[in-house]
Design a protein around this nucleic acid. Structure first.
Length: 427
RNA sequence: GUGGGCGUAGCUCAGGUGGUAGAGCGCCAGAUUGUGGCUCUGGUGGCCGCGGGUUCAAGUCCCGUCGCUCACCCCA
């Protein structure tokens, strides 16, 4: 009989690691609040069509990476591979735009893509992200970038860069695609097979191909920034000006096009410097056309980003940024079985009612073993409760950090622990 | 989907040219009749991923298979 194990590309987040997750999540929520973003939680699965139409049929995500299945009523369901389309769906479905012209939303949630796992790539992974829906103003683009930066800064991350580009509006892109095809036409035969396909379907994707031959060809390709309409160009210039004015350092990356079809105007990425092959910490941009792709009657402007939590953890570990996160209980009650065990159990109940975190012995071990357990658990105090103590109504309270031990009246234990915790912040 | 590396104790890993297994850490216990961390002593713990083949004999060689991992594509 084979042991059951986790599905490829998934992870068990065990207690020592989950403390890191909580640390990051707490920071994310703090910064989101600082910028006035509110949390939205959408379902983990959606009708397949949402992603097929929203993200684009010929993106890698839709064409080969989605977890799609038929439910019992033969409806096609997909585990969400990314967060933006569901948020936009929820925005439209709930008429959030009618309630307020600007909706600033954030999420922290799992995503699912059926790819081969490797460092920094999982089948279930987690992202936090923001969507600023409504404004067309460049300020909104810049604000989302600053949210991401502030989160990384707050966590102490140093080794990363911001890359930015504009993929223009529909008109700019039609013009640019034609320029690019024109440019590549003579050397079509030298392109890699996938890029030969892209040449027709989505020539801009050739720009971020990593194949040597394609790379060489693209070096001198025309730049999309030179093909932008005056509106698109003005928007991009304003974004850059705002970044400059607000102390954001960035690099313009002419080959940054991003993998999802819905981007317009601004596209940007947070690139980690210590991550290995999968080095994108997060990415985002403006997507003014997504709403209509999934059925909105009128154009809905929006900009946002998504960032990987697993990759952030990797980056933070390589920069050694996690503080001591061990949170031991306040007190471990050691007993000797029988009446002392019952008394200890009841005492724990009383202490917990007073918000003192308490551990009791559950294995019936020796005092020595219980003391070892108390130490291992990180408890601040050990309380020793034996027959004598029960009789005299006084128990021994030992401070495990400095080994100070004193007799305390059973009715005074909570007060004693509280005052000691307060006075010396015990360890 | 493709390619490389790796599967030996709870964890990290040793195990020239084949002779049925070891270390460190952890865990348990003792030194200390009711007191942790340090030290010392002892102990627990392994169908050597699985299946087949070669051989008197396989952790070791061969084949297959599964799993993990890194990488390609692409992305978080």
């Amino acid at each position: 009989m084979k042991n059951i194990q986790k599905i490829k590309g998934t992870q068990d987040i065990l207690p020592d690691i989950s403390a890191k997750w909580q640390y990051i999540e707490k920071t994310v929520r703090t910064i989101m609040r600082r910028y006035g973003y509110n949390e939205i939680r959408t379902p983990m699965f959606e009708v397949t069509d949402l992603f097929a139409r929203g993200i684009g049929q010929l993106t890698d995500i839709v064409s080969k990476e989605m977890y799609t299945f038929l439910d019992r009523s033969k409806k096609s369901i997909t585990l969400r591979p990314e967060g933006t389309a569901p948020v936009m769906r929820a925005y439209l479905e709930n008429n959030l735009g009618e309630a307020r012209p600007v909706q600033k939303l954030y999420y922290i949630s799992p995503m699912f893509r059926q790819e081969n796992p490797q460092a920094g790539r999982l089948r279930q992974f987690h992202q936090f992200g923001v969507e600023c829906i409504g404004p067309q103003a460049p300020e909104a683009d810049v604000e989302t970038i600053m949210v991401g930066l502030d989160i990384y800064r707050e966590l102490g991350l140093k080794n990363f860069t911001v890359k930015i580009n504009s993929v223009g509006d529909a008109e700019s892109r039609i013009a640019y695609k034609a320029q690019l095809q024109e440019f590549l036409k003579p050397s079509f035969a030298q392109l890699c097979p996938t890029c030969q396909q892209r040449y027709e379907t989505n020539p801009m994707r050739i720009l971020d191909c990593k194949n040597e031959a394609c790379n060489a060809l693209i070096m001198d390709a025309p730049r999309i920034l030179d093909a932008l309409t005056s509106d698109a160009r003005a928007h991009f210039d304003k974004v850059l000006a705002l970044l400059d004015q607000n102390e954001v350092t960035y690099e313009i990356d002419h080959r940054l096009v991003r993998g999802l079809d819905y981007y317009t105007y601004t596209a940007y990425e947070f690139i980690g410097g210590s991550l290995g092959a999968q080095n994108a910490l997060g990415g985002g941009g403006r997507y003014d056309l997504l709403a209509e792709e999934i059925g909105a009657k009128k154009q809905t402007c929006a900009v946002g980003f998504a960032a990987g939590i697993e990759r952030l953890i990797m980056a933070m570990e390589s920069e050694n940024l996690f503080p001591e996160l061990q949170a031991g209980v306040d007190v471990f009650i050691a007993t000797f079985g029988g009446a002392t065990q019952d008394a200890g159990f009841k005492l724990a109940h009383d202490l917990r009612k007073q918000n003192i975190s308490t551990l009791t012995e559950l294995m019936g071990r020796s005092l020595k073993a219980q003391m070892r357990e108390a130490n291992r658990s990180g408890a601040r105090f050990a309380l020793i409760l034996g027959e004598d103590e029960l009789r005299t109504r006084r128990a021994s309270l030992k401070n495990l950090a400095n080994s100070d031990q004193k007799e305390v009246d059973l009715n005074q234990i909570a007060e004693e622990i509280k005052s000691q915790l307060q006075s010396n912040q015990a360890r």
